[in-house]
Design a protein around this nucleic acid. Structure first.
Lengths: 147, 147
DNA sequence: TATTGTTATACTCTATAACTATA
DNA sequence: TATAGTTATAGAGTATAACAATA
């Protein structure tokens, strides 16, 4: 039992280190591309899932409404997204990725993927499948616990 | 090859989610205990490895020297650590955990471990060993890459 | 000259609360 | 009344640069 607890701590430590090692690299890449991780997350959402109400973006990225306004303002000033009014409910504003934003993502997203591929090449394809299963199981179980 | 790239992206996503799910819980625990993750990291270092030069702490936790001063000031004000001069090199200041800091860690560290154990109980002991091996391999390989 | 730690300063990100407008 | 988004404000945390003390 005591060994089990140490094992769980160990898992947390190696998981954290692996995550940190990867995100240090990706964040550096984001920064070199002129966006921060939050902005990239918003752009990725809009790029892959289409336009979204600001409220919903806040829900996915876990940001308060005032903070969303701030992030969306920045992306809009940079020309990567536009605000679009909802015709059916005039309280709602959508954020939609612009042509310029699409070009930006079309350029950096494949690089991001490629970088991730290189960063994880220590694992074979089989090991990655194993790791995916284990991390999925772990992540999902905790999401369930948090209610 | 294209599938391999998608697989790597998938691994990054599930790894990030699992990590986020866990750290959300641990950070909440830290906050309830009155410290932030950085402060906990410093305390843990001093608790388990003994006193350290401020410079070295900054290296481990990845903080600039000015930021270290800020963090150490906070912990010192709370009475969890003390500054100790080095007799051999008068430029150096050690941070050392105080009795009060030890008591604090003696109380919360086992809780932290227990919490981690509960959070990871979706995985069997064998699965955890697998996950530990995979994450270790991944994390170490990236550290090697970053030189 | 180089290194350690401090000070002063500024910036980024996020949260909170009060507000407007719409429903 | 409740919801969506904005504005104004504040705070935490971090970085940078200039500095003093020491090596």
């Amino acid at each position: 039992m005591d060994e089990d607890i140490k094992q769980s701590l160990k898992l947390f430590i190696v998981l954290s280190r692996a995550h940190k090692a990867i995100t240090e690299q990706t964040n550096q890449f984001f920064q070199a591309s002129g966006v921060n991780p939050t902005e990239f997350a918003v752009l990725e959402l809009l790029y892959h899932k289409g336009k979204q109400p600001l409220q919903k973006i806040g829900g996915k990225i876990l940001l308060a409404s005032g903070s969303i306004t701030y992030v969306i303002d920045k992306l809009e000033k940079r020309g990567y997204i536009t605000r679009v009014n909802s015709p059916s409910d005039r309280r709602i504003t959508y954020a939609e990725i612009s042509e310029s934003g699409k070009e930006f993502m079309a350029e950096i997203f494949p690089e991001h993927e490629k970088k991730l591929h290189e960063l994880t090449e220590a694992l074979s394809s089989e090991e990655k499948d194993q790791a995916i299963e284990l991390m999925k199981k772990l992540g999902l179980s905790i999401k369930d616990l948090s209610y």
